[in-house]
Design a protein around this nucleic acid. Structure first.
Lengths: 226, 226
DNA sequence: AACATTATGTCAGCGACTGACATTAGGCAA
DNA sequence: TTGCCTAATGTCAGTCGCTGACATAATGTT
């Protein structure tokens, strides 16, 4: 408890990952990749878990040891991206106010994720296809919204931490998290359905989010007749 | 095609509903009721569709002719309430600005729904139990969020209509609808989890929503340090 | 009373998911 | 290397949500 269990002179942890872990990571990635391809090809509902598993040469049972359900494999990359956003948010300097920090964090996240992998899995073009798939697949949309909502709770916690507030007493953290979540979702929608005059890169996404954030005030203002 | 098919002198439509329709309505209500009871008793996941159908003495196949899936029967009353809210919103005078209209509509909806049926199905106590069930059941929460999101699109359309805007060009209708949806959802959460200092009646719910709406400005404000 | 319509029941089947148990393979020590 | 422990995988059987196809019964109409 006091000290770490005696470690060999050459820390085995320095070998980034054991063969076992690396193999697991590989099959997991392969599953996500195969699923992604199949879903985009013949649609989510018309793709069976057996087919995904077969594509990676793995039993169905193994698939369900990696993913709790069929939706999870489809939303895996989204989930990772959201986790990354939260990391970015945690890293923002305390000097920024809440809204500034959120804005900066999401810009940072999109910029980073967009770097180097414009195409290919996890890339921006793949993201666009994924958004459309989610939006047009009721089951996926439902699961995605749930995930998003869970993340908002985490975000609210981070915000409350930054400001030294009790998230149960003060309503602002949860509210800002939820409102920001809505803005991001609507932006994703605009990005995938109508081009909305934005270019297809991460910069286009960032611009869209900024545009929507800028409209928050006007939308909540008393009258819309300018 | 040009005129309605010749109708008897005494309009048959005046008989509110034929025997057939009444019967259908009764079994539908019975299914919702039985499902509600079973879900609250042994939980959503541990209740099978067969059990619900059996409780109403109907085949499983018939159940699925009334509801597309297991979630739908659980969320039926919520769906009706949301539809009613939209009706209220449509009925608000054009003089009110968008936010005012939304505020007034939801107050009106809760007041009306709360009248007369404090207990019993569709009543306020039942609503509280339902909120908790939804919030603690991942599958239900996902389905509920999806429903809610669909409704937001409708609400945005109504708002755009009121103001004579194109909902594709102007971002404000969708934004306000989404933000309002978030406020309502968070209020529901507060209402069911922590009492949040509100009483259990519809008035308590209304008060909670008002409190959250009042905090929207502060939450979006630059600094939270007052 | 005969007919058209529509709700319901029955049956067979697919696909998502789970628990239990056997088997294999990676990590580690003697 | 050998052998053991543990963790990953495969196999199997079974439950449950859900659907299409067809038969039957109830209802409404002429």
């Amino acid at each position: 408890m006091a000290a770490q269990p005696a470690a060999p002179a050459i820390d085995p942890g320095c070998r980034v990952l054991g063969l076992r872990e690396r193999k697991k990571q590989r099959t997991r990635d392969a599953l996500v990749d195969a699923a992604h391809t199949l879903f985009l090809d013949r649609g989510y509902g018309d793709t069976t878990v057996d087919e995904i598993a077969a594509a990676v040469d793995v039993s169905q049972r193994t698939f369900f040891r990696y993913f709790a359900n069929k939706e999870e494999v489809a939303l895996a990359v989204m989930a990772d991206a959201e986790d990354f956003f939260i990391d970015c948010l945690r890293g923002r300097p305390a000097a920024e106010n809440p809204l500034q920090a959120m804005r900066a964090a999401i810009t940072e996240a999109w910029r980073t994720l967009g770097e180097g992998r414009g195409t290919g899995p996890g890339g921006v073009t793949a993201a666009l296809e994924l958004f459309e798939l989610i939006e047009t697949t009721p089951t996926l949309l439902a699961a995605h919204l749930r995930r998003t909502t869970e993340q908002e709770r985490v975000v609210a916690g981070v915000l409350a931490d930054r400001e030294g507030l009790d998230p149960l007493t003060d309503l602002r953290p949860r509210l800002l998290a939820a409102v920001f979540g809505s803005v991001v979702r609507i932006s994703h929608l605009s990005w995938s359905t109508d081009g909305a005059g934005a270019d297809a890169g991460p910069d286009g996404m960032i611009e869209l989010i900024e545009r929507h954030l800028d409209q928050l005030g006007p939308a909540l203002a008393g009258s819309w007749r300018a």
